[in-house]
Each structure stands twice: as structure tokens, then as C-alpha cells.
Computed example of a mutant assay.
Amino acid sequence: MNVDVYFILTVVTVAILAIGIFIYLFQHRFFFQPEKLPPDFKFAYEHLNAEEMSVSPESGATISYLHFHVDEPKGVVLYLKGNTKSIKGWGKFAIDFTRLNYEVIMMDYRGFGKSTGRRTSDAMKRDSQFIYNIAKKLFTEDKIIVYGRSLGSGFAARLASKNNPRLLILTSPLYSLQRTIQRYLPFMPAKPFLRYNLPTFHYLKNVRCPIKIIHGSDDRLVPINTAVDLSEINPQLTRLYVILRAGHIDVHQFEEYHRVMEEIFEERKVFIDAEKTSLSYSHRKD
């Protein structure tokens, strides 16, 4: 092998390893941007009845969550939030479901808000299942809706694949953390350096309930093609809603998002008589 080629390959290999080690050591700062709250912080929301709760799913870990109550609830939404801040700010989004007469349970991941414990993907998966089990004690599974937004979509999809909720809703979902890294570093073999494993696409293969995916057409952080790819994994159960002009963090600021939400929760089932539609028509036969 030519010495110059060998030298170039060596430099490239060393550079990739260096970047890989950097990704391994600091990916938690990219994936998780927590806001920590003092133990005496009081949650308060206008027009919402929030009850603060905490549980210890295992030794050395405490999970803080909010339970938003409504009178005569139709069911409960288990809300898995994004990767920033805490339920202090995310809690206000509960109104999108309480207005439809659904209670909401919203947890803080480890290291967020008042939650404590060593943060790993496996631990966070166990935590979300622990909270799901709490919801099952309050409501039958046919009244549980799992909602995941952004990073929370992975945890939500996993819960739906391991349990039997009525519905799974994903807003601005990630395909996987691996694809997220490779979007910015396409030359990197990201998988060997990943400490957090959250393959939304894999979990969707085993979901048995209806899947609703909501995504902004102008999302630059997680492009719309991500939602299209996810919608094709389990197409018989999936419907994709595109919110025109919406981005990643402002999708809820569009009226269409809330109209879509009402349609999803009303869950109108329409029978299609194939003989009275163009379902069987083909231009190729004409």
C-alpha cells in the first residue's frame, strides 16, 4: 500500500475514533438538557388541577410526576415529554388533553426537575413502565393513551409495544438516536458509540393499537421525512398528520394541531364501502 494512502487512512481512522469517543462521553449533553428544581418548588398552573407526586421505582432513584385531574374523566394521557427543561414548563401542555376531559400524568426523567437517579436509557425505560403501571391502577388500559413528543416518542413507542393502551400518539418523533447523530455526522459509524438506545422505529413494529403521528412540515431539527418513514413501519395501524408551516418546537402553536387532536380523541370510525368508491379502479386497465 502506498505510504501516503496508509498515512491518510491512519489519520482518518484516528479522527473517527476521537470523534466517537467525544460522542460517547458527551452525548448526554446533546440528548438531555435538564432543568433541576429545588425540593420545595411548588407547581401551579392556571386552569389546571395539578397534584404533585413522587415514587421510587428502584433504590437510589426518585421520579417526580404531575397528575392533572378533571371531573368525570374519559381516560388518562401518559405524557412523555421532550429532552429539555422540566415538567415545570411542560406541564402547561396538559391543557390540550384536560380540555377534552382526559386526565394527564406527566413525569420528569432522571436528573430533570425533582427526579433523581443515574440516567441510563434502560433505567429511563423502566421508569416509564413504572409510571404506566401506576396509570393502570387508576384506569383500564382501554382508557390509557400514550403520548410522546420529540425524544419522548421513543419511550412512548416502547410502552405501546410492551403494553396494550388504547392509542399511541407521537408528535415530532425521532426515528432513533443513531439516525439523529448520523444526520449531523453522516460519515460516523454512530452505533458503537451510543450510550442511549431509543429506536422508535423498532418499537413501532410491535405496537398493536392505533398509531397517530403528528409532524410539522417545516421541522428542521427532525425533518418531515422521519415521520413518513415511521408511518410506513406499521401502516395498517398508522395515520400521519402534517401540520403545514410548523417547526419542531412550535407545532402546538398552530390551530390545525388542535383540530387534529380533537379528531384523534373523538376517534370517529368510518366504514368505507369499496364498491361505492374508486378503491378498485386502475388507469392501467383503461
Score class of each variant (00 low, 15 high):
residue 98 T to Q: 08
residue 85 K to S: 15
residue 147 Y to H: 14
residue 145 I to E: 15
residue 89 G to E: 13
residue 120 T to R: 10
residue 145 I to Q: 14
residue 152 G to I: 02
residue 142 D to M: 06
residue 106 M to E: 10
residue 106 M to H: 10
residue 115 S to D: 06
residue 147 Y to E: 06
residue 75 G to N: 09
residue 75 G to M: 10
residue 115 S to P: 07
residue 117 G to C: 13
residue 72 E to R: 13
residue 107 M to A: 14
residue 108 D to Q: 03
residue 114 K to N: 00
residue 141 E to Q: 10
residue 111 G to P: 07
residue 104 V to F: 01
residue 146 V to C: 13
residue 144 I to E: 04
residue 109 Y to F: 13
residue 72 E to N: 14
residue 98 T to Y: 11
residue 83 N to Q: 08
residue 79 Y to S: 11
residue 131 I to L: 13
residue 83 N to H: 02
residue 131 I to A: 05
residue 75 G to F: 10
residue 123 A to L: 11
residue 125 K to T: 09
residue 95 I to F: 12
residue 102 Y to L: 06
residue 77 V to N: 00
residue 93 F to C: 02
residue 144 I to S: 06
residue 109 Y to R: 11
residue 137 K to L: 03
residue 77 V to T: 02
residue 129 Q to V: 12
residue 76 V to P: 08
residue 135 A to Y: 00
residue 101 N to M: 13
residue 119 R to A: 06
residue 112 F to I: 12
residue 101 N to C: 04
residue 136 K to L: 02
residue 100 L to P: 12
residue 132 Y to V: 07
residue 129 Q to H: 13
residue 103 E to Q: 01
residue 128 S to P: 04
residue 119 R to L: 12
residue 72 E to S: 13
residue 95 I to E: 11
residue 88 K to S: 03
residue 96 D to L: 11
residue 109 Y to D: 04
residue 116 T to M: 07
residue 79 Y to C: 08
residue 124 M to I: 14
residue 86 S to H: 09
residue 88 K to V: 02
residue 79 Y to R: 03
residue 119 R to E: 00
residue 74 K to I: 04
residue 95 I to V: 08
residue 107 M to R: 07
residue 122 D to A: 11
residue 106 M to R: 10
residue 133 N to F: 10
residue 151 L to N: 10
residue 112 F to H: 13
residue 94 A to S: 11
residue 96 D to Q: 15
residue 99 R to Y: 12
residue 118 R to A: 15
residue 135 A to G: 01
residue 141 E to A: 09
residue 144 I to F: 08
residue 115 S to V: 08
residue 138 L to N: 09
residue 90 W to V: 01
residue 145 I to C: 08
residue 95 I to W: 05
residue 130 F to R: 12
residue 142 D to S: 04
residue 127 D to M: 00
residue 108 D to R: 00
residue 139 F to M: 08
residue 84 T to G: 04
residue 136 K to W: 02
residue 139 F to H: 02
residue 90 W to M: 01
residue 107 M to L: 15
residue 102 Y to C: 03
residue 119 R to V: 11
residue 136 K to Q: 09
residue 141 E to M: 05
residue 113 G to K: 07
residue 103 E to W: 10
residue 89 G to Q: 12
